[in-house]
Design a protein around this nucleic acid. Sequence first.
DNA 1: GCCAACGTTGGC
DNA 2: GCCAACGTTGGC
Length: 163
Amino acid sequence: MKYWLMKSEPDVFSFDDLKACKNQTEPWDGIRNYQARNFMRDEMKVGDLVLFYHSNTKPPGVAGIARIVKEAYPDHTSWDPKSKYFDEKSSADNPRWLMVDVQWVAEFPNYVSLDDLKADSEEGGPLDGLLVTRRGSRLSITPVEEKHFLRICELGGIDAASL
DNA sequence: GCCAACGTTGGC
DNA sequence: GCCAACGTTGGC
């Protein structure tokens, strides 16, 4: 099993929004970055756990845990001219973009802010090497090492063994 | 709202 | 295949 961090702007789609979805599950559409797409296509499996990160908000940080419940399949918004995610180079016959289905799992009792993450990301710290705290990191889907995932659960106040 | 960092596009 | 121009992300 792998671990991931996925960014979403809460004004667009928040962790609470995911909880309110039918079956607490929603397709993660709109990914238009090849590196992120390739992670979904090549590495994401059902059962992988996801840190749900709120970007472009105050403060940015991890709101809780989600889970991959459906592996990569074509993102239909990419060939819908009415969608803001429309890409004229994508079609149903030859889809360029993919999405996965994500299910809400548990909210962190303690929101883990970006400052909290940074505080542990210094050299030799428990989150040393975490991609999201690297300068200039803009990738919306990043892999997370197991030890980092466990530490962030600890900061969030959730026993990872209970997931 | 600013802007640094990074990705994509397209002319050559 | 290079790289300048442009667009986007996302913290601040």
